[in-house]
C-alpha cells in the first residue's frame, strides 16, 4: 500500500545555498505538498536566501511566520535564530528555546514536531552539512511511518550530516542531489494513482 504524503521537511547546513537551489528549482509548479526547511544560518535583516530561492523556484518561497497555516505548494524557511515547529493543527510556530546540536533553528526540532503531526504522511530529507543535527529527527520520522531520504554523502559539499543520518539506519533512500526532486515527483504521482 502506498502512503498518501502530506508534507516534506528538509534539513541542510554547510553547503546548503547551492543544494537548495538545485533541489527546489527542479520542483514543478504543480508540486502539491508544502515544504518546510531548516537551513542553519545566522539571523540577518536582509533575507538574501529567501529572495534568491524565490527567483529560481516555481513555488512560493517564504520565511515562516508564527501561527501561519501550512499551505500546499509553498516552501517555508525557518527564520534565523528561531526554531521552527509544526503544531498538530498544521500551523507553524516559532520558539527561542535553547539551541539543539548547537543549532537554532534546529533540524531535529522541525523533524520531530512534523513527525508527530504528519506521521506516515511525512517525507524527511537530509542534505549537505557539517554536523549531526537531523539524525534524531530522521529516527522520529521513520518511527512514525514516514519516508526518509539522505543526499548521497559523496555528492554532498559536507558529508557529516548525511553520514550521521545514514548511520541511524533509519534512511530509506540515498540519492544524489539531482535525483531527489524527480524522485519526489514520481512518488507523488504514484501516491495519487493509488489513491484514485
Amino acid at each position: 500500500m502506498q502512503n498518501h504524503y502530506e508534507a516534506v521537511v528538509i534539513g541542510v547546513s554547510a553547503g546548503g545555498f547551492r543544494a537548495l537551489h538545485t533541489l527546489l528549482s527542479e520542483l514543478p509548479d504543480h508540486f502539491t505538498l508544502p515544504v518546510m526547511i531548516v537551513q542553519h544560518r545566522k539571523a540577518s535583516a536582509e533575507n538574501y536566501l529567501v529572495t534568491s530561492l524565490n527567483k529560481n523556484c516555481r513555488l512560493l518561497v517564504k520565511e515562516a511566520d508564527e501561527k501561519e497555516k501550512i499551505t500546499s505548494g509553498t516552501v517555508y524557511l525557518a527564520p534565523g535564530d528561531y526554531h521552527l515547529l509544526v503544531e498538530k493543527d498544521k500551523t507553524l510556530s516559532l520558539s527561542i528555546d535553547e539551541p539543539v546540536c548547537y543549532s537554532r533553528p534546529s533540524i531535529d526540532v522541525l523533524f520531530e514536531t512534523a513527525a508527530a503531526t504528519y506521521q506516515a504522511g511525512l517525507i524527511g530529507i537530509i542534505l549537505t552539512g557539517a554536523n549531526s543535527d537531523g539524525s534524531a529527527g530522521i529516527r522520529s520520522i521513520k518511527a512514525g511511518g514516514g519516508l526518509t531520504i539522505s543526499q548521497h554523502p559523496e555528492t554532498a559539499e559536507a558529508d557529516t550530516m548525511p553520514l550521521a543520518a545514514i548511520a541511524t539506519k533509519a534512511v530509506d533512500y540515498i540519492l544524489t542531489l539531482q535525483e531527489i526532486s524527480p524522485f519526489l515527483n514520481d512518488l507523488l504521482e504514484q501516491s495519487h494513482e493509488t489513491k484514485e
Binding site: S93, D97, T113, A116
Partner: peptide, 9 residues
C-alpha cells in the same frame, strides 16, 4: 500555550 514547544519542554 502553543503545544509543540510546550510538549518539547
Amino acid at each position: 500555550y502553543a503545544r509543540a514547544s510546550l510538549t518539547r519542554r
